[in-house]
Amino acid sequence: MVEIPATTPSGSGLLSFLSGWPFLTGIPPKAGGIAPRREFFNAVNLLLSQHTFFQQSGNIYPWQGKEGDAQPGLNYLKGAHVLGSDSEEYVALHPSGPDVPASGGGFVGPVDPVGDESGIWVSIKALYAAGIATVEDVGLVKPDGVTITIKPDGTISAASKYDLCEFYYFRHPTLKPGFQPAQGGLVANAATLYPKAWAYLQTSEGQKLCTTEAEWQAMTTAIWHTNADGTTVGWNGIGGAPFYVQDLSAGTLRMPDLRGMCVVAAGFDSLGVGDAQGDQGRNAAGAVGAIDMSTGGTGYPPSGPFYGSKTRTGWQGGAYIFRETDFSLERVQPTGPAFAPRRWGGLACCCLDIPAS
Score class of each variant (00 low, 15 high):
62 P>Q: 07
107 F>W: 05
355 P>W: 06
353 D>L: 03
66 K>N: 10
350 C>G: 07
181 P>Q: 05
97 G>T: 02
136 E>Q: 13
90 Y>F: 09
261 M>T: 03
283 N>L: 08
350 C>L: 13
222 A>Q: 08
70 A>N: 12
231 T>E: 01
16 S>T: 00
292 D>C: 05
63 W>M: 00
181 P>N: 05
167 F>E: 03
207 Q>M: 14
326 D>A: 11
296 G>H: 07
231 T>I: 06
340 A>S: 15
206 G>Y: 01
354 I>F: 09
281 G>R: 12
357 S>M: 07
268 F>M: 06
48 L>P: 05
14 L>T: 04
73 G>Y: 00
247 D>P: 05
47 L>C: 09
189 N>Y: 08
24 L>S: 13
280 Q>G: 12
160 S>D: 08
232 T>V: 07
184 G>E: 00
32 G>V: 09
5 P>V: 04
237 G>V: 00
271 L>I: 11
207 Q>K: 15
8 T>M: 02
343 R>S: 14
99 D>P: 02
181 P>Y: 05
76 Y>T: 00
129 A>K: 11
140 L>F: 14
69 D>Y: 08
321 I>W: 02
210 C>L: 10
251 G>Y: 01
14 L>Q: 08
336 G>V: 13
318 G>K: 11
182 A>C: 04
55 Q>C: 07
302 P>Y: 04
259 R>Q: 10
228 A>P: 06
20 G>Q: 05
311 T>N: 14
236 N>T: 07
127 L>Q: 14
39 E>G: 03
300 Y>Q: 05
45 N>E: 12
328 S>D: 15
11 G>S: 04
75 N>E: 03
345 G>Y: 14
314 G>D: 11
322 F>L: 13
229 D>G: 07
283 N>C: 08
46 L>P: 01
246 Q>S: 06
39 E>V: 10
221 T>Y: 11
224 W>H: 14
26 G>M: 14
159 A>M: 11
266 A>T: 00
335 T>E: 14
43 A>K: 01
293 M>V: 07
11 G>R: 06
196 K>S: 11
318 G>E: 13
205 E>I: 09
321 I>S: 02
194 Y>H: 09
126 A>C: 09
27 I>S: 06
128 Y>W: 10
282 R>K: 12
82 V>Q: 02
124 I>Y: 01
95 P>R: 00
185 G>P: 01
187 V>T: 02
224 W>I: 10
202 Q>L: 09
